[in-house]
Simulated assay, not measured.
Amino acid sequence: MPNPCFSPALAIPAMMAALLCISTGARAELGGTMSSEANSIAAAPQTLLNGALRLRTVTDAGNTTINEYATNTGQIIAYTWQGPTMPDLRALLGRYAGSYLTGAAALAPDGNLHASRVARPDVIVESGGPMRGYAGRAWLPAALPPGVTASDFH
């Protein structure tokens, strides 16, 4: 999902406030383990890239589609989302939420109200879109299996 319009934005304070106000959902989180079984909110994962990744798709309460990517061992290494509402980033990022917030707070506004990119050594988060058209992705750069790149998360 390469997108040159992802850049630091004035929307960072609003996104940080939303992140802090949202409650934790029932999904796993970055760095956690993806279940290999179907459940009430998601079907069984699909296999991608000759078995290098597993993909599970869910729709959250706000009708946003969330793709959860895990390694073949089940470690969740990325999320992508698209829909009318922002997903629960605190729940998706889990223990990486603090790093994301630290990085977001350090960004200088560039006048773009609809996109941001926070790149930290442990987690990268890109998010943007107009109201009711949110899209983004978050991933753990050090956890990518050989041959898998961020462009594989779309």
Rank of each mutant, 00 (worst) to 15 (best):
D60G: 13
A108D: 03
G83A: 10
R95L: 13
Y69H: 10
M16A: 08
V118I: 12
D110E: 03
H154R: 14
G111C: 15
A70F: 01
Y100G: 06
L20M: 14
L140T: 06
R117K: 15
M1S: 03
P121W: 12
A52V: 01
A17L: 15
E29T: 08
A135T: 09
D110S: 13
G129S: 12
S36V: 15
A70D: 00
S116C: 11
G147R: 00
V125A: 01
A115H: 09
A42N: 08
E29F: 11
T47F: 01
W81F: 02
Y100K: 15
F153C: 01
V123W: 01
S36M: 08
A142H: 11
S99K: 05
G133R: 08
A14E: 10
Y69Q: 03
N50R: 00
T65P: 12
M34C: 05
L93D: 03
S116H: 05
T149Y: 04
D122M: 03
Y96A: 04
T57K: 10
G136T: 07
N50T: 00
N3I: 09
M16T: 15
D88R: 11
D60E: 11
V123D: 00
G62H: 02
L93G: 04
G32D: 09
G147S: 01
Y69A: 02
D88V: 04
S36W: 15
M15E: 02
E68N: 04
R27A: 13
G136A: 12
L53S: 04
P13R: 14
L10P: 13
A26P: 14
L113N: 14
N63K: 11
G111F: 04
T85N: 03
R132V: 12
M131I: 09
F6E: 09
L140Q: 12
A143W: 05
P130R: 12
W81G: 02
M86E: 14
R137F: 03
L144C: 01
A44P: 10
W81E: 09
S7A: 15
D60T: 15
A70C: 11
T47P: 00
S7R: 10
G31R: 01
Y79H: 13
Y134H: 09
F153Q: 00
V148H: 00
I76L: 11
W81K: 06
L48P: 05
G83Q: 04
H154N: 12
D60S: 08
W139N: 02
M15R: 02
N39L: 06
P84L: 07
G32K: 10
A42W: 06
I124V: 07
G32A: 06
S36K: 15
M1N: 04
W81L: 15
A106D: 14
A70K: 00
H114R: 06
